[in-house]
Design a binder for these strands. Structure first.
Lengths: 344, 344
DNA sequence: GCCATTAGTCAAAGCGCTTTGGAAGATTTG
DNA sequence: CAAATCTTCCAAAGCGCTTTGACTAATGGC
């Protein structure tokens, strides 16, 4: 069923039907109702390719997910982020086009998306500190929204981020207040902007108390369960081991917990942990008292906001780009306690 | 840059350029090389919407991911599956269109995708035992490939699945051989085909040894970390607790491990665990000796095979539909040992 | 040397939609 | 009551591509 046939059924012209369906004012309320009902009944839906071609703009948003060839890990937060964004897209009649791309080829993918006209805009995932994608997208005039920020980019652009730095600063302060003096950091890949900011928060908090930054207490890498485990095992094996850990992801936090237990220690007693919690649905850190003390910020919510921001930016290209800063909660759980040496 | 301009640059007609780029034989090798080079140089890429409209077929595959409104969990295996499929799509010039949909609306989404012509085919995720989507897709003639099977569907259709039943049967037998007599099953939602089959494998193995099926030892639900934890805690609190668990997902297995430790027991000694392992990149069950004894089957590989199968089915609609059965490995790790009672 | 064949190229139609520029009918206005 | 203004609808152009059918030039067979 195409427009031609469908409008013939109704005894109307294609123009009128198209306008009725797309909410143009030049059509009477009665006609519109009739058209909409008939569309429902006959299951008429405009062909997307034809519409995109005619309007010159695809009703689709691209998510370009980078995968480092080195790690081959698809970060599990993407799934939740996309789930959040997806609800907004379908509410606004957009489709979601996903590309999983090796870091190296990313620039080309953006260019292709633009040239093929298959998306109206893109979400930029996991930006680097000095990400050149933002500049690229600006120059090829493909609307975008960044999940996170790019510290080195000065011109205003659309982003949704959490307060990574402040959240980790507060988390570190909490551990310091509990008497911990040697705090291990198990962080994401620190060329990524979020991880860089988190480390800044951590080191700022230490510096504010006059404590030195010890490279032996800092790990950076893909946030797997294994990374949390080995990070803990290795640091605890040092001569002057940490009494607490700050961890960038719940997945790794579960690994850290395993490491602590394998070391014959008790979490929240011998060793404290504060983790960041993206509120992934299958890795809930809940219960009356959560397992982990955590900085909390829903990545699904971030997805929703990103989608809304990008759609707004597409609709109103001349408005200043939307920017949203989410504030992570610091929630106490069972994984933190006074430092052993500070106890009576 | 569109085809008209581009072909003018070359002094050729649109026809010839189009044919050169799409590998038609009616064009000389010299001309083809010249066209391809120029396309590269000028960054010409055909507009997807126009191409799709002209061919009447979108170069895109739809992934429709169901989210139960009850649980709101996006299963983390989707991310890895899609990562696998994605490589095949880009190699074949397909885009990937993702829809996350509440179970209830799924049928409508398929109809819409067909009507809008925005995909050439779809991947069906997480099929139910008596899934009616397969029949629907057959009837609206939208090519598809199912990740898993639909036990109640008799006509041949395209699928990629692992041997859920046999794998879980073997896993149960292993535990039985180790002397375990009471084995808890922490399974996915058992209206889903994969979970149903796994339970069949479990109960078959018990029945073969003349052991009864105890409903008190069986849990079914979304495979979260929490589900593994509570499953273990609750079952261990029973008067006649199990000495081993069979678990449908690594995520839950990590939760189960936490439950065992919180109960003051030692995994692999007091309590054995066999888990299914989808080989998710961030939840590696590796090391010289893996943490968990597991049935192993890469979901990323399944994604690759699904994509290939679907593309084949689209290209050759009259061939018998591809069907692939993956055999899960049974890998010994540190989580299994002889049943306590069986020890000297 | 002439006709049949093949290789290489082209002009134009058509995919299904949106949108421009009018036109016809209904309504108001002076 | 004719002119002006809405309101409501329409015919046709155009979006950028693929593909059909035709045409020209080169090749081969006799």
């Amino acid at each position: 069923m195409n427009l031609k046939q469908f409008s013939k059924t109704l005894g109307l012209s294609q123009t009128t039907v198209s306008r009725a369906l797309n909410g143009y004012p030049e059509v009477s309320a009665a006609t519109r109702a009739r058209v909409e009902q008939a569309a429902q009944k006959h299951g008429y839906t405009p062909n997307f390719s034809a519409r995109n071609l005619a309007t010159g703009q695809a009703r689709a948003i691209g998510h370009v997910i980078p995968v480092s060839s080195q790690y081959e890990v698809v970060n599990p937060v993407f799934a939740d982020l996309i789930a959040g964004a997806s609800t907004v897209y379908s509410a606004n009649g957009y489709e979601l086009s996903l590309s999983i791309v090796e870091n190296a080829n990313e620039a080309q993918v953006y260019r292709d998306l633009k040239a093929r006209g298959s998306v109206a805009g893109v979400i930029v995932h996991a930006p680097e500190m000095d990400d050149n994608r933002v500049a690229l997208l600006d120059s090829i005039q493909l609307p975008f929204a960044v999940h996170g920020r790019v510290s080195t980019h000065t011109k205003p652009y659309c982003w949704v981020d959490m307060n990574n730095r402040t959240a980790f600063q507060r988390a570190t302060e909490l551990l310091l207040d509990l008497g911990h003096r040697r705090i291990g950091l198990i962080n994401g890949i620190e060329t990524k902007d979020f991880a860089y900011r988190r480390r800044e928060g951590y080191s700022d908090a230490l510096a504010a108390r006059g404590l030195p930054l010890d490279p032996a207490l800092m790990r950076s890498g893909e946030m797997t369960e294994e990374a949390g485990y080995t990070g803990v095992i290795e640091m605890l094996a040092q001569k002057n081991p940490p009494t607490a850990f700050l961890i960038s992801s719940m997945v790794s936090a579960f690994g850290a917990r395993r490491g602590i237990e394998d070391s014959g220690l008790v979490m929240g007693q011998d060793i404290s942990i504060v983790s960041h919690d993206d509120e992934l649905a299958y890795l809930q850190n809940s219960g009356e008292t959560p397992i982990f003390t955590s900085t909390r910020s829903s990545v699904r919510e971030a997805g929703r906001l990103l989608a809304e921001s990008l759609i707004a930016a597409i609709k109103h290209p001349n408005d200043p780009p939307p920017q949203v800063l989410l504030k992570a909660d610091l929630r106490l759980g069972r994984s933190t306690g006074a430092a052993p040496s500070a106890k009576p």
